[in-house]
Simulated assay, not measured.
Amino acid sequence: MSAVSACSVKSPGAFPARTEISVNGVVLPYAVIAAEAQNHAADSPAQAFAEAARALVIRELLLQEAKRLGLTPAPETDAQGRRETDEDALVRALVAQAIPRDEPVEESCRRYYDNNRRRFRSGDIYEAAHILIAATPETEAAALAATREIIARLKRDPSGFADAARACSACPSRENGGNLGQITRGQMVPEFERALFAMAPGEISQEPLRTRFGFHILRLDRKIEGRELPFDQARPRIAAFLSETRARQAIAGFIAHLARQADIRGVLLEGAGGGA
């Protein structure tokens, strides 16, 4: 979890390139901020520099508080054998001490579940088939006409869908009579999904559907409704989310408190003392 998101720089796009930045008299070197800026995606170098300055100012605030409290770093090593730096260990120890994590109570988890049931439901599954008539700018008119002709034939004899797919479709699914198997949200292009998900089982599209691939004729064979995850199964995920949310809010408040007590120069953090 990053404490950096708790405060914001004022007018980051206009950050002066050589302004001296300090926290309670400790100057943050320009070169260190410039190096940190490489880790911040932004619309301009000035914005990246400002984001880096914000991150390093907050880090310095936390390190100074950890040292004031006399905390001792106890670096950890991850599964790949990488050892935590002493400064990272100090920040982690300070956050653990200042922001104790409480397990969300049952009522809070239940309330969140009841208010967000859609988040705990598996997606619907659609079994579908299609016929694709490829189209380029030069062949679009002819492709549209061919698609409309196939739709007209299918209106008279819907059972001919698979044969039409094998004879006319430009999609590899033609080998299976146009059958696409089971589809869930996010697998197909948006316009394809919007049209398919609006259909009733057994329906064949009455108008050509245009996508970047060409013109489609859709058939929805079956819709399998998603299932709601029971509360007991969703609870661990909800508890972790609520705990993380509360911790982020508490860290934001803790950083704002430190900023109000500090003399921060060169960067304006919300709630900070000192000046630019």
Results as ranks from 00 to 15, higher is better:
E84S: 04
E76P: 00
Q97T: 09
A42I: 05
E107T: 08
A93C: 01
L94P: 04
I151V: 11
A46F: 10
R117P: 01
Y30T: 14
E51C: 05
I150P: 08
S44H: 02
N39Q: 10
T77S: 13
L144K: 14
P73A: 15
R101L: 14
L90G: 03
A143D: 11
P100V: 06
E36A: 09
I99A: 15
A55S: 09
E51V: 03
A96D: 10
R148F: 08
A37H: 03
A146D: 15
A134T: 06
R111F: 01
L154D: 08
V32Y: 04
T77I: 14
R148V: 12
A96Q: 14
E103L: 09
T136N: 00
T85E: 04
Y112M: 00
I131A: 12
R111Q: 15
A74K: 15
R148N: 13
S44L: 02
E87I: 01
R121I: 08
A98C: 10
L63A: 06
R121L: 11
D43G: 04
V95E: 06
E103R: 12
R59N: 13
T139M: 03
A41V: 06
A48E: 01
E107I: 04
L154P: 07
A35Y: 13
A50V: 04
A142E: 15
R148G: 11
L56E: 14
E149Q: 15
L71D: 05
H40K: 02
E87T: 07
R83F: 03
A98G: 12
A89E: 00
R117M: 08
A135Y: 03
N116R: 11
E107F: 03
A135N: 04
T139G: 01
L132C: 05
Y126S: 09
Y113H: 10
A55I: 00
C109Q: 15
R119Y: 02
V95Q: 04
A42L: 00
A79V: 10
G123L: 14
V32R: 09
A53P: 02
A129Q: 12
G81H: 04
L56K: 14
P137D: 07
A128K: 14
I133P: 02
A142R: 14
A145F: 13
A134N: 07
R119E: 08
D114E: 15
V27E: 10
T136P: 01
R148S: 13
A134Y: 08
P45W: 10
R111G: 02
A152F: 07
R111Y: 03
I131L: 11
L71H: 07
P104Y: 12
N115Y: 05
A37N: 05
Q47I: 10
F120D: 00
A128E: 11
V26G: 03
E60W: 06
P73K: 15
E65D: 05
E87N: 09
L94M: 08
A53L: 04
A34P: 05
Q47D: 05
A135I: 07
P137M: 06
A41E: 09
A93R: 02
A135C: 07
Y30C: 05
D114C: 06
Y113S: 11
R118E: 14
A145L: 12
Q47S: 08
E103V: 11
D102V: 12
L90Y: 06
F120Q: 00
P29L: 13
